[in-house]
Amino acid sequence: MARAVTTNRKVINTAFAWGIGLLIFFPILWTILTSFKTEATAIADPPVFLFFDWTLENYQVVQERSNYARFLWNSVIIAGGSTVLGIIIAIPAAWSMAFVPSRRTKDILLWMLSTKMLPAVGVLYPIYLIFIELGLLDTRIGLVIVLMLINLPIIVWMLYTYFREIPGEILEASRMDGASLRDEILYVLTPMAVPGIASTLLLNFILAWNEAFWTLNLTAAKAAPLTAFIASYSSPEGLFYAKLSAASTMAIAPILILGWFSQKQLVRGLTFGAVK
């Protein structure tokens, strides 16, 4: 609405919105601040907000003591691997649904969505058994497969909604120009859909990174990602707030940054295109 608003009203809006925004953000801010405190300052009463001796000690301790880097690497591999694998499987499927729709396309899409709604806990034991049988328990590849499967419906849906916006005539033009199906997808569709594919990649990376049911239940030590690493702090010993904060900050920082980039696509991806 391009309408002049009184400055007064704008000041009130701004103050109010910033106040609430900071309140909501505060737990994250507090965690980040605490990560730079010593353990003693972290529990000081009254709490210290900004004026303390900033230290990087916690980050060093976290890294040395718990081999943080390995958990991080597991998270990257598991989230990245499952997302990329999912996209490779989903692109052809989304191409089919968007450009060669049939009577059953809608049913298939909805059915895919419904698999997403299967409560994980309902199938925990079978998956557990299958994992033991196949030797996948506590392996990265096992988690890559499971997370790929849970996110595949979202990936297919997101790509489908993006592909539908690409005019079919352009793909037909490539067919007339002598492109095979492979050429058509590789040289025409994929480059045109880069923004859509990128946001799909981003959102699903975030979802996989934060997934905390299968990653907690299917890993022990070797393949445990950051979710499990952080969960290990739930039964702590001694003073640990600053270290917990440092570890938490490291676990969420990359995702916060990625998340801010993907906020626009988030709505579309999580509502399966029902809200744009």
């Binding site: 953000f25 737990p27 975030i206 499990a228 952080i230 702590p236 917990l244 916060l256 998340g259 906020q263």
Partner: peptide
């Protein structure tokens, strides 16, 4: 951005931060 941020926090992190801090 401030308002959206909590959505990107890992569930285990947010639970632990709230529980302890």
């Amino acid at each position: 951005i401030l308002v959206i941020a909590p959505f990107f926090v890992m569930p285990t992190v947010s639970a632990l931060v709230w529980k302890n801090m």
